[in-house]
Design a protein around this nucleic acid. Sequence first.
DNA 1: TCACTTATGCTCAAACTGAGCATTGTGCCG
DNA 2: CGGCACAATGCTCAGTTTGAGCATAAGTGA
Lengths: 332, 332
Amino acid sequence: MTTAQETEGEAQSTLSNPSAVGLVAVIVAATDGEPRALTVQVGGQARGRSDGLPAGPLVPEHPTLERGLRAWVERQTHQRLGYVEQLYTFGDRDRQGDDDGGLHSLSVAYLALVRELRPAGLAEAAWRNWYHYLPWEDWRAGRPDSLGEIEAKLLAWAEGSGDPKQRRRREDRLGLTFGLCGGAWNEERVLERYELLFEAGLIPEAQGQSGEARDADLTVTGQPMALDHRRVLATAIGRLRGKIKYRPVVFELMPPTFTLFQLQRTVEALSGTNLHKQNFRRLVAQQGLVEETDGVTSGATGRPARLVRFRREVLLERPAPGFRLRPARRPT
Amino acid sequence: MTTAQETEGEAQSTLSNPSAVGLVAVIVAATDGEPRALTVQVGGQARGRSDGLPAGPLVPEHPTLERGLRAWVERQTHQRLGYVEQLYTFGDRDRQGDDDGGLHSLSVAYLALVRELRPAGLAEAAWRNWYHYLPWEDWRAGRPDSLGEIEAKLLAWAEGSGDPKQRRRREDRLGLTFGLCGGAWNEERVLERYELLFEAGLIPEAQGQSGEARDADLTVTGQPMALDHRRVLATAIGRLRGKIKYRPVVFELMPPTFTLFQLQRTVEALSGTNLHKQNFRRLVAQQGLVEETDGVTSGATGRPARLVRFRREVLLERPAPGFRLRPARRPT
DNA sequence: TCACTTATGCTCAAACTGAGCATTGTGCCG
DNA sequence: CGGCACAATGCTCAGTTTGAGCATAAGTGA
């Protein structure tokens, strides 16, 4: 809130307080049924280089943040960005990794979806499977093995709280986010899970990292990223997993024509779960999300599949077209 | 994207490029079945004062943006903020209202829900019904009258486009957002509607405002706000309307105990639609969102209603407890 | 030609929705 | 005090939507 005096004056320039503002982008593609994010190598000599998300300064030339981001990414990667969405603005003092000399430093994070992956343009850039960084999020082959160890440590962390009230609260959170203590796994709570692991000291990026995290088995707690970028990635995944349920954004990741099964694989890749095949097709058909082309697949094993394309008209018809993911028990 | 050189160096201080960053808050309450936002008086002598949202500088003392906001609001309004959520970071050069001498100016907007409305603390602050600013969003008494005039003007705007392709696109957008041309009204697209009106020149806040907008009947296009604050408000309403469907946030606006009908009124106030009473209760009951107290209402006309309270445990049980609003035809 | 693999069609019971009708308490008004 | 108006609650019912499978079709490779 601001007092009347503070807001006096047309320009409202009391908003100032110069800060360092940067952009971060989670650029997502899906090929071969795997979800991928564009990563770059960052970091100097001291701690060695590590993977990070593409980040850069806010360019003041553009009228809009989003347009600035588009131009910046497209110039650097020669990628045509399809869908772009603002994710979140991160501004935690103690987690940005730097303080930039007393300035508050903010990162405005964006999510972008691209259709195909080009050679990534930059030498230092690479497309990486995002579960490489968050392995516990991939349930497509059943419950990830790494979860056993993670749960044990999380439970120990909850137990370790002296205050029984706090311990209760921690257990509740475990139930909510990781489905422990009788809770169910909710694939959208990616960020909450990451934050919980962070708090529990299982994430090496944490500054006051315990020896625990530093020695962590990376196949269990995943590949670290520079600064707070894994948090940004987790935010992106969570958002995307939520969005595909009520907006046809997956098609931004698909080639012009594709089979229903390829579509399913992509949705599964994003959501990290398996879907019931027949019901998936029924859903897609009912919603009118695609229309048939006269092409069929060839070459691959099994019966050839009809190629379909996205029906842009649904955007005008349906209020909220998307996939309300219903996981299959076990067989796809 | 950033070249390898640009990300060189531990501190990643190339993110810099100092900018002016401010906070804006949409503080929401619901009383007497009306949705309200806390507004303040802003602006100098030149254009006269006008309503605005509470806004202030980013305070660098706090470790987290959100905590900074909480402290700031609670200190100024003596309001205890229940739920707080980051909304969006606005950074359009041409719409911030000021350029602050070449700095890019950003506003990080937050949504906060409060349970009761205190006298608002500040002399200049007031709780206003949010439909005062966006009258076309309130469908509780049926289709708003003002929509007739709005539609006429929007259609004229679409027609007015020389390029038939652009005109087609404009018509599609009208259908999507305002439900014209055979589309359906989707109560979540608050921001899209506002932006469309803005583009169509019906919003006086637009800088290159036509005489049209300036002379607009405020009962039709709503009360203007300072700077871009109506856009922020529209963002908040849209977000909240979406959120109540899958997260029990409405309870942040309710007193400790309440009747099911009061709850329904609140949900209706937020969503701007009417709901089928019996089905609404069934939904609430099925989801286990509330538990009965042994109190009942008294005094009012009609049969006394049981008082209930929010069942916190649902947060631990249900994956996504909320109201999937199903509007009633006409009778409540 | 057989074995295998994936694509597609179709069925069925259970759960969920959208709309109403019917009944039950209360305060108020002659 | 009986009748009314007005909410609160209970309950029904048909039409959909879901979750799970069974069955068949149509290629590939041995």
